[in-house]
């Protein structure tokens, strides 16, 4: 019943069996904290984000950090080689991660990463898309829905304009990007279930 943490935000999927659950979590937290801080720094740079109430800034970040990280780290999933690179720098094959207990979430992450990377977005486009992912008025606990909605609409308009300018002959890219939003929600839900299972374990 040896425990494994099959998340690329960890340095390695292997867990020292001598360590307590609390110690394992502390180590894991230590490895993903810098990535979470980067998401917060990114959010601070979104024009208009700092003008939202502090409560709504926290709510958006709490709900959306995982989805932002999925977009930012899509390149950790090598679809061709079927490997995942962990933050420790080592690559693991899908088969080895499956043997360690990874399930449907891993497959779904590969599918998502493949489709996103295939769109061939520039850094600027990816950044704006990430802002759209984060600023969603329908997240739970938002107190000023109108303000978040207004910012969300501004960001979506900016994304559409940038995509239309950069890809005049590929009108479907913007639609495909918007369709990634429910995919990310679904990944987020699956991930929350796995976190719950880990915590119960």
């Amino acid at each position: 019943n040896r425990m494994h943490l099959v998340c690329p935000m960890n340095t390695s999927p292997h867990v020292d069996p001598q360590k307590s659950g609390h110690e394992v979590w502390e180590e894991f937290s230590h490895s993903f904290t810098p990535a979470v801080r980067e998401v917060v720094e990114f959010a601070k740079k979104i024009p208009g984000f700092r003008e939202l109430s502090q409560h709504d800034q926290v709510s958006l970040l709490k709900a959306g950090t995982f989805e932002v990280l999925v977009v930012r780290f899509a390149s950790l999933f090598d679809v061709k080689d079927r490997t995942v690179t962990f933050l420790g720098g080592k690559r693991y094959s899908v088969d080895s991660l499956r043997a360690l207990g990874a399930g449907d979430l891993l497959n779904s992450m590969f599918d998502f990463s493949e489709k996103l990377m295939n769109l061939g977005l520039s850094e600027e486009e990816m950044s704006l898309f990430t802002a759209v992912v984060l600023v969603s008025a329908d997240r739970s606990g938002i107190e000023n829905v109108n303000s978040v909605e207004a910012l969300q609409e501004t960001l979506i308009r900016a994304l559409r304009s940038l995509i239309t300018k950069n890809h005049p002959n590929e009108a479907s890219i913007f639609t495909k990007l918007l369709l990634k939003l429910p995919d990310l929600r679904s990944l987020n839900n699956m991930h929350s279930e796995q976190l719950l299972a880990f915590k119960v374990h």
Binding site: R37, V40, K44, K62, A63, L195, K199
Partner: peptide, 27 residues
């Protein structure tokens, strides 16, 4: 368990990072 972000310490990290000065002082 209905709020994994709070349960797993994410909210604390986010709040500290949003208030950058506090984080700097702690480090």
């Amino acid at each position: 368990f209905s709020d994994p972000a709070s349960n797993l310490g994410l909210e604390d990290i986010i709040r500290k990072a949003l208030m950058g000065n506090l984080e700097d002082r702690q480090e």
